Amino acid sequence: MEQINRLKVVLAEKQKTGKWLAESLEKNGATVSRWCTNESQPSLETLVTIAKTLDVDVKELLNSTKKKV
C-alpha cells in the first residue's frame, strides 16, 4: 500500500514549506521534517493547530483508513 503523507501534500498545495510551518507553530524544524517524512506524528492537539494554521479541515491532514471497494 502506497503511503502518502498528507501534511507534505497540503504544504505543497498551499505553497508553504516545512520551515514556514515550524516557525508558525514555534516548533523545531527537525520536528516538522519528521512529521513530513512519517518518522513521527504530531499529537492530536498539534494536528488541529496545524490545520488551523494551514486553513484546512483537520480531515485533509489524515489518510483514509477505509478500504476502497
Rank of each mutant, 00 (worst) to 15 (best):
W35Q: 01
W20H: 01
T46A: 13
S24M: 08
S40L: 14
L62E: 11
T53H: 02
L61N: 00
T53W: 02
M1Y: 07
L54K: 02
L11A: 12
E23A: 08
I50Y: 07
V58R: 02
T31N: 09
L25N: 02
R34A: 09
T49N: 13
M1H: 10
L54P: 00
Q15R: 14
L44F: 09
K19A: 11
E39T: 10
K27L: 08
C36F: 05
A30I: 04
A22M: 01
L44S: 08
L11V: 11
K14W: 06
K14G: 08
V56N: 00
V48Q: 15
V58M: 06
S24F: 02
L21K: 00
D57C: 03
L25K: 02
T17F: 06
L25D: 02
N5Y: 03
K14T: 07
K8G: 08
N28I: 04
G18V: 03
V32Q: 05
I50G: 04
A22Q: 01
K59S: 08
L11T: 12
A30S: 06
N5Q: 06
W35V: 01
S64H: 09
K8Q: 12
T17M: 07
K52P: 03
S43D: 14
E2L: 14
T37R: 14
K14H: 08
C36T: 06
Q41N: 11
C36S: 07
S33E: 05
E2F: 14
I4D: 12
I50L: 07
Q3E: 13
D55R: 07
W20K: 00
E39G: 09
I50V: 12
T31P: 04
A22T: 01
K16W: 03
V10C: 05
V32I: 07
V32P: 03
Q3S: 10
S64Q: 13
A51H: 05
T53Y: 02
T49K: 14
V69M: 09
T65M: 13
K52F: 06
N38L: 15
I4L: 11
K67V: 10
L7D: 04
N63I: 07
L11F: 10
K8V: 08
E39K: 13
T46R: 12
W20N: 00
K8S: 12
L21H: 00
A22L: 01
T17G: 05
Q15E: 13
S33C: 08
M1C: 10
N63C: 09
E13K: 11
L62G: 05
L11H: 13
N28W: 07
A12E: 15
S40G: 13
K27N: 05
E26R: 15
E26N: 15
D55P: 01
A51V: 06
N63G: 06
V10Q: 05
S33Q: 05
S43E: 14
Q41I: 08
L54D: 00
L54W: 00
M1L: 12
D57H: 07
L25G: 02
V10L: 07
T65V: 15
V10G: 04
S40H: 14
S24P: 01
T46Y: 11
T46S: 11
S64R: 10
L21Y: 00
V58A: 08
S40M: 15
S24E: 12
V58L: 02
D55Y: 01
K67G: 06
